[in-house]
Amino acid sequence: MISANASDSFDRILQHAVRSRLVMDAADHCSVARVSTETMATDADIVTFTISGLAFRLLLLLHLPARAQTREYFVRDAASVTPLEGFLEIGNLCCGAISHALSAHFPDLGMSTPYVLGAHCLSHVDALGPEMLATYAVVINDGVQVGVTLAVCADGPLDFQADIPAETESCGELELF
Results as ranks from 00 to 15, higher is better:
A41W: 12
G96Y: 00
L88P: 04
P83H: 05
C95E: 13
A97F: 07
L64V: 02
T82F: 13
R34S: 03
V35S: 00
F10N: 13
R12H: 05
V32G: 07
R12T: 01
V138K: 10
L58R: 07
H124R: 14
E85P: 05
Q69H: 01
L58A: 03
N92P: 00
S9D: 03
Q161E: 15
Y115S: 00
S36E: 09
A78I: 10
I2D: 08
H120Y: 12
L61N: 03
S52I: 09
C94M: 15
A26P: 05
V35N: 01
P107S: 01
E175K: 12
D163N: 11
R57I: 09
F49R: 08
I51Y: 00
V144P: 10
V32W: 04
I13Q: 00
A41R: 15
A162I: 11
S9Q: 07
A4N: 09
N141I: 05
H120I: 14
D77S: 11
A27C: 11
D142T: 12
C121T: 13
E38A: 14
D163Y: 07
I140L: 15
E173H: 06
S20K: 00
A27V: 07
G110C: 00
E38R: 03
D126Q: 07
E167Q: 04
G96N: 05
T149S: 13
L62W: 02
E167F: 12
V32D: 07
L176T: 04
G53L: 05
V81T: 14
L150A: 01
M24L: 10
D108S: 13
S52Q: 13
C121K: 09
M132I: 05
H120P: 03
A4K: 14
H100E: 13
G129D: 07
E173G: 08
L93C: 08
A6E: 12
L59E: 06
T135S: 08
T135W: 10
C153H: 04
L102Q: 06
V23R: 14
A127I: 06
T149I: 09
P83G: 06
V125K: 01
L102D: 04
T37C: 05
L93S: 09
A97G: 04
I90S: 12
R67D: 11
M40I: 15
A17F: 11
S99D: 06
H120E: 12
A162G: 11
V146L: 10
L22W: 02
Q15A: 11
A104K: 04
I140Q: 10
C30M: 08
Q69K: 09
V47G: 04
E175N: 11
C95T: 05
M111L: 07
G53D: 15
T39N: 04
S7N: 08
P165D: 12
G129R: 02
I90V: 12
A44Q: 06
V148W: 06
A17W: 07
Y73D: 10
P114R: 04
V146S: 01
L62G: 00
M24G: 15
L117H: 03
N5W: 12
S123H: 09
E173S: 13
L61A: 06
L54I: 10
G118V: 11
L88K: 12
L58Y: 10
T37G: 02
H124N: 10
A127H: 04
V35L: 02
F160V: 08
N5V: 00
E169H: 07
A151K: 00
E72Q: 14
I140S: 08
L128V: 03
F56G: 07
V75Y: 14
V35F: 05
V47Y: 00
